[in-house]
Amino acid sequence: MVQRHEQPTELELLIKIRGIKKFFGDKAVHDGIDLDIYRGEVLTLMGGSGTGKSVLLRSLIGLEHPDQGSIFFGNKDICVLSEQQLIDVRKRIAYVFQYGALFDSLTVKENLAYPLRAHTQLSEEEIHHRVVSTLSKVGLEKSIDLLPSDLSGGMQRRVGVARSIILEPEVILYDEPTTGLDPYNTRQILNIILQLKDHGVTSVLVTHDMHAIFSVTDRVAFLKDGKIRALGTAKEIEHMKDPVLQGFISGESW
């Protein structure tokens, strides 16, 4: 199966989250979150259902706007950028949606070609080559002419991953990449995460599925009550004494 990789040796701070607060109505989903994300690492956000993991991930590319706080990517604060200014950020940070979110009126090929057509000047031929080579990374080059509705859930998700990595982003955000997948598709996706890591790509994952993720992740952040309750390497987290955390990991409480 997949192998654990070394921690990055020199740490370059890539994304700096400071004092994020987010309210839906009078319910505080985030109540002051601080978190650093380093270049080249795999960071997992963990926490019970409804603790705002997806909302945090969405905030990282400006799909959601926190009510307070800032998220620095380079020298830019993502929280204050307009949709127009966010385009540059979104070319460098990709988002993998939980169910793939493929455009169901377009074929697999056109789904993958979409970001290329939007952001590059490549010729049709070059686009075709890029699409085929990216699809082969997720093992789906045979499905190039199918529609999303012809694919299984796991395949849709892998196409979703392919569409997100085709522009070669620096950071990839995965919302529940393996939840509900069979072992084969799970391993495929974990392999992609590790391969990208070898190329220096940073990954942020959200998951409930700790046992799969612990094999690929460098660090884990545990969200509880709108705050980061525990943060550390996968090993550290496994051995932390916090009863709430251990209850969550063992599945006894959340």
Binding site: L63, E83, R90, K91, Y95, Y99, F103, Y114
Partner: peptide, 17 residues
């Protein structure tokens, strides 16, 4: 239905409007 299957979010996330 594009909205509830997150395709509208995907359009934004891919840097398009």
């Amino acid at each position: 239905s594009m909205n509830v299957t997150q395709q509208i979010d995907a359009i934004r996330a891919l840097g398009t409007d």
